[in-house]
């Protein structure tokens, strides 16, 4: 049954960190990322896939340092990315010695990882980690065209973000001050409204985000109770559609709504409808949003991680693109 699940235990996002590429570093959130590669997005590696793995490692290392713990203190790591067989995550953590669970939730993986890590802590594990990444260059070659291929994009197309985000989720309270606490989670349902345009992922994912939000508010509360309702990567097109769909069902989220895909490339040229990819919401949450929860600017946040669960193969076979959106309710709490 679809309803928000309230965590009985106090589960905190003890620390978060991000790694990001050149364009992301040049964007409005550039100064907030912990590690950036402003040269060539390779992070010192010779293939794009290895570069993506390196970003995951850098983000996790930075988060562990911030939490003041070692890798051996992590009881379970939930990691995922966009590549076949989740290779970026598999190789990133092969030598870490951390118990590992690989995830695929397309661009919703950051929210999926947060949900599972929080549930694992709720079930009794002490400290878990959730890490996700996407890399423009590795995603392009798997989902679209070679990098140097000359083509034009449509205005509704989105740009895969080169970034990774890591979250240390724990029942322990080590740091003082305000910590983001995961109070509720709600896994989304798969929603397929028949969109099959690979260049309009926003339209494919927005109905899933609307389904999750409408489901969440069925059990009480209203959007204005929150400081921020932040979606993962709907971009401009998907954000507008989401607001329309919610408004049509009597839910006015517009005054509180923001989208990570728009935040990361706000004001940047050539990014069309905005950013997308696992790393998009992961990096924006790990840097901007959670920082604002820690410093008290935001107290009550709904994070809705959106994903387009498609493969180029099935789309070529004529199938439409199913969307998904997982919800995490985060509150700032003095510890």
């Amino acid at each position: 049954m679809r309803k928000p699940f309230k965590l009985k235990n106090k589960v905190y996002i003890a620390a978060s960190a991000s790694a990001a590429g050149r364009d992301e570093a040049a964007g409005p959130l550039g100064d907030l990322f912990d590690v950036t590669d402003t040269a060539d997005n390779r992070f010192g590696e010779d293939t794009w896939e290895k570069a993506e793995s390196a970003m995951q490692r850098l983000a996790l290392d930075a988060a562990l340092r911030r939490a003041g713990i070692g890798a051996e203190e992590i009881d379970a790591l939930f990691a995922g990315d966009l590549l076949d067989q989740c290779v970026s995550s598999n190789y990133a953590h092969a030598e870490s010695g951390i118990p590992y669970l690989g995830l695929y939730g397309a661009c919703s993986t950051a929210a999926e990882g947060m949900i599972l890590a929080s549930l694992a802590c709720e079930a009794g594990l002490g400290t878990c980690a959730a890490v996700t990444s996407s890399h423009f260059c590795s995603a392009e070659r798997q989902f679209r065209f070679p990098l140097e291929y000359g083509g034009q994009r449509t205005p509704t197309s989105q740009w895969t973000v080169t970034a990774a985000g890591a979250f240390i989720i724990s029942r322990e309270r080590r740091a003082g001050g305000v910590l983001p606490r995961v109070t509720e989670i709600m896994p989304g349902r798969i929603v397929d409204r028949g969109i099959s345009d690979l260049s309009n992922m926003g339209a494919a994912m927005a109905p899933a985000a609307a389904d999750t939000l409408l489901g969440y508010f069925e059990s009480g509360g209203e959007p204005r109770d929150f400081d921020l309702i932040v979606t993962g990567d709907l971009g401009r097109e998907g954000s507008d559609i989401l607001r329309d769909l919610c408004a049509a069902s009597g839910l006015d989220i517009a005054p509180r709504h923001a989208d990570c895909g728009l935040m990361i490339f706000d004001g940047c040229s050539d990014k069309h409808a905005g950013g997308s990819g696992c790393g998009c919401s992961a990096a924006v949450m790990a840097s901007d949003v959670l920082k604002n929860v820690r410093n008290g600017t935001l107290c009550n946040v709904l994070f809705v991680g959106t994903g387009a669960l498609m493969s180029p193969l099935t789309v070529n076979q004529g199938a439409s693109i199913p969307g998904i959106a997982h919800l995490v309710h985060i509150t700032g709490e003095e510890v």
Partner: peptide, 9 residues
């Protein structure tokens, strides 16, 4: 929905 999405794009 598909018509709406296509029209507004």
């Amino acid at each position: 929905y598909a018509r709406y999405a296509e029209k507004r794009a």
